[in-house]
Design a protein around this nucleic acid. Structure first.
Lengths: 331, 331
DNA sequence: ACGATTAATGTAAACGTTTACATTTTAGCT
DNA sequence: AGCTAAAATGTAAACGTTTACATTAATCGT
């Protein structure tokens, strides 16, 4: 790989001048710019981002870190894509990692981000990781939180209004006349999961309906627990007439369970899920969902981070994007 | 951020010794190792991957580049996840990019990979990008191709046997008695797409059946063209009795088109798609597919790359993994 | 045409590591 | 104790940039 030095030698100028033409900055005489560029061209020179990042104290490194639980979840893929599009538009690359919500992995990757001196990192924190995330923030790394929040710390955050979303779903079920509504909730360690439960409770309270504690179960956001919990619910002596699943995987799991019992949807059991996904429309029946604007969450987070980088003393933003109730055929 | 120098000063040893304890290599007296470690601990020292990468000529940089068309396609997400799991197990981080199969983006990211001096890159090439990919390979960057191949170049590749997969699907349809079988093919610029078409043709030839050219249409792997082309096919005076869609998105598009016409599946039209995805089972009807072992493709590719890094003159591997015909209810 | 400004270019240090080589310390023998 | 070999540690250069500062070249007003 040719280096600055090679270009300097070939063009007959010093490395400083070459560096200047690369950075387009300062004043360099058009004729020398031209011959330097010719030299770069003929060598196939490409500046080393590594050397640049090492030396440069102030400027942008054009590298972002993103840590998501699992890219196989369409919601995460959407967020990632939103981030990436903004990143690419600004010539940033992104180091993307899967944490599986495991503390150990999250910690490892957080260290990688520091060690790579990325410009900043975007991630959804979970309860266990808070300490590690906080530490990184304190060390001065720009961070924006997505999808989930940490209480009591001043950091840019872009969330979805989970309580409104969940409440909208339940309101709709209640309006349909349902009164025995089950919730398959997510892990209590995740803030969005707690919020969705809050929305569920709020809807009941406002409608002056009692919550049957037997009807709320908590899973771990996977398809298999979704199915298992739905089966438990269906086996109750007095089963629910409607089920609200707190994320996409558990909704599909519940769908499977209902099909397995040969129950009709929505006639025998209504179903609604949190999170939209590309094939929700094509399910049997088309699944009603509350759709998070995940792509926009990603975009917004990335833009927020970029803004902060170019202007560190911007006030902290805590954004909350609105979910949308999409009614299809399952309720 | 504390540096080697800070640790050296605090511990009273030289930077060389500190470097040695970091790398666990060489012989350093247990007592000094201990005090150096204590110093590192108390400073919260983390070695800079950037400086390390700049200096070190031989060793591993523990950084991989991955360029995929679009992470929102579950197939890509699976591949990415397979790669990432192997990467993490070996303490590698990965720079993940979406190319949208656009030459410009692919070129940009390829440059980023070189400029970041990653250890190697994994990507599915497409026809337009071949030149850029070839150039990178010539420059000495370890590359492994996934999912698609480039003809005539000696480079590690892990593919899926697309012709066998497609042929298996068509064979099954023929066995079911279908004779007017349509194919919604992918872009000719993508090798896997051409191979799937080849499998389609091969099945016909072996069965001594003629192909009606009217029945093969080529789309661009998106859901909307899948639907549009399926509608065209259904509108034919003599429509097909079975449809084979060359990827997941187009299969779902076709499903939509068929539903829109209120045709029964598989009674009126049978449908089978290439690519499995988490909700194929829950579609209406559950979709039969030929499933690519995408996760394994990712794992294999990453392992291949790692192997090559530790042993550059390993013979070139061209692996072809077998797809699996998964029969559900759509044919 | 001459000195004073200003513009263009060059020199060298710095970023945080690794590593070849030099130096010092320790251990092993007699 | 004293010599030698081996082990431990230190010194300094290098990786490829950016950048403060120094130097040289160009421009301009008189």
């Amino acid at each position: 790989m040719p280096s600055l030095n090679d270009v300097a030698k070939l063009s007959g100028y010093s490395i400083a001048t070459v560096s200047r033409v690369i950075n387009g900055s300062d004043k360099v005489t058009p004729s020398t710019r031209e011959s330097v560029e010719k030299a770069m061209e003929s060598l196939g020179y490409l500046p080393s981002r590594v050397a640049r990042r090492l030396r440069q104290k102030g400027g942008l490194r054009h590298l972002l870190g993103v840590i998501l639980p699992n890219i196989q979840n369409p919601i995460n893929a959407e967020i990632a894509r939103g981030i990436e599009d903004i990143a690419y538009a600004n010539r940033f690359a992104v180091i993307l990692c899967n944490s599986d919500d495991k503390y150990e992995k999250e910690k490892f990757y957080l260290d990688v981000m520091r060690a790579e001196s990325v410009d900043g990192v975007i991630l959804p924190p979970n309860q266990e990781s808070n300490a590690a995330v906080l530490e990184v923030i304190e060390k001065g790394m720009p961070v924006v939180l997505v999808d989930r929040a940490i209480r009591g710390v001043q950091v840019d955050t872009v969330e979805v209004d989970n309580v409104i979303g969940a409440k909208a779903a339940i309101d709709h079920l209640i309006q349909l006349g349902h009164t025995r509504i089950a919730m398959i909730a997510g892990p209590g360690s995740i803030s969005n999961s707690r919020q969705r439960k809050r929305g569920f409770e709020k809807a009941f309270k406002e409608a002056n309906l009692p919550i049957d504690p037997e009807l709320v179960r908590t899973g771990d956001y996977t398809q298999s627990t979704g199915r298992a919990l739905a089966e438990e619910l269906l086996d109750l002596t007095s089963p629910p007439t409607a089920v609200f699943a707190s994320n996409n995987f558990m909704a599909v799991g519940a769908l499977e369970a209902i099909h397995k019992r040969n129950l009709r949807i929505p006639e025998d059991v209504a179903l609604i899920g949190f999170d939209d996904f590309p094939w929700a429309e094509s399910l049997d029946p088309p699944l009603s969902v509350v759709k998070q604007p995940a792509y926009e969450v990603g975009q917004t987070a990335a833009q927020l981070l970029l803004d902060r980088l170019s202007n560190p003393d911007l006030p902290i933003s805590k954004l909350r994007l609105s979910p949308e109730l999409i009614l299809r055929k399952s309720c």
